[in-house]
Design a binder for these strands. Structure first.
Lengths: 160, 160
DNA sequence: CTACAACTAATGTATATACATCAATTGAAA
DNA sequence: TTTCAATTGATGTATATACATTAGTTGTAG
């Protein structure tokens, strides 16, 4: 059971933001609201990542590889975990390799596959970014801890 | 005052979806959750729009122009209302014009400006799409009306 | 063993995005 | 009036995305 109270100032925000006076229904509205909020967050993320010459998706791939804890990941495995899951991990890994942030080697057991591993440089870059990202998140997200938890659950349920 | 009850099945969904076992904090988690949900919704949207040869952003521009109710919009005005607000409306309008969905004329009062108006073809395309989009939204969003309203308020408050 | 289907990654292409720069037009200051 | 800065949109460039196709590798059916 969740009890939640929102302040009056937050009413009707999305209508003002995109200067649309009315939505056909709440479902339509929530789609627009999510797309708009996505853009809002990516803009914040970019301000932190851009000075490090990282795109949001490159950053995402680095975190996926860190999550492997030393184990190599194939291109397909990275793709599966990516947030934009229809794109191609192959070229993103190319870019990261060019910057020395990942290594890529032919998998010895199956020469079709490629083993991708994050390098020490990649790991230290993530460590450098972590406090900045945390800080940025706190600034960008004007919600209490309880509201953030509720939002997480609603999003999970949305995708069902 | 909002009272909300979520089912147990929805717990921990984002962790499974991207196969990440743990997040540093709830703020970090909600950012990933929003990015992931965005991708989920765009994928659904695309299934409806692609048969009509419309990209999500082209569709967005058409709806912005319909919202003008006959009044022309300048490129700058469109850009301001776009969900991805740093991009260029100019080339999107080009594409829509090539399909006959919008008209573009030099503004008589200020020759730097351009008046963009949706055409009858553009309006009927939107009318054709509307029930499909509504239907798709209902299928994609596994939330009750009350939860959708709550999600809208949380997103508005998030951006503060 | 050979041939072929399935798998895996890389590549090609069109579109979109992010951002910088350019060119035309306007309005205002000198 | 002339000049110049601001405005507005178009264009250039690099990157990313969505999707189709290709190429090499593997496993398996005949």
């Amino acid at each position: 059971m969740y009890i939640h109270q929102l302040k009056d100032e937050s009413m009707g925000k999305i209508e003002e933001a995109i200067k649309q006076s009315e939505f056909k229904d709440n479902f339509n509205k929530v789609v627009v609201n999510l797309l708009y909020t996505h853009s809002y967050l990516v803009t914040f993320q970019t301000t932190v990542l851009k000075p490090m010459d990282l795109s949001p998706e490159q950053y995402n791939v680095l975190r996926i590889l860190r999550g492997q804890q030393g184990k190599p990941a194939t291109i397909a495995a990275i793709q599966e975990r990516m947030l934009n899951n229809m794109s191609n991990a192959s070229r993103l890994v190319d870019k990261l390799k060019a910057k020395g942030l990942v290594k890529r080697e032919e998998c010895p057991l199956n020469r079709r596959k490629v083993d991708v591993v994050i390098t020490a440089e990649g790991l230290s870059l993530l460590e450098l970014l972590e406090p900045q990202i945390t800080n940025m998140n706190k600034k960008a997200i004007h919600l209490e801890d309880q509201e953030v938890a509720l939002l997480n659950e609603l999003l999970d349920k949305l995708r069902g």
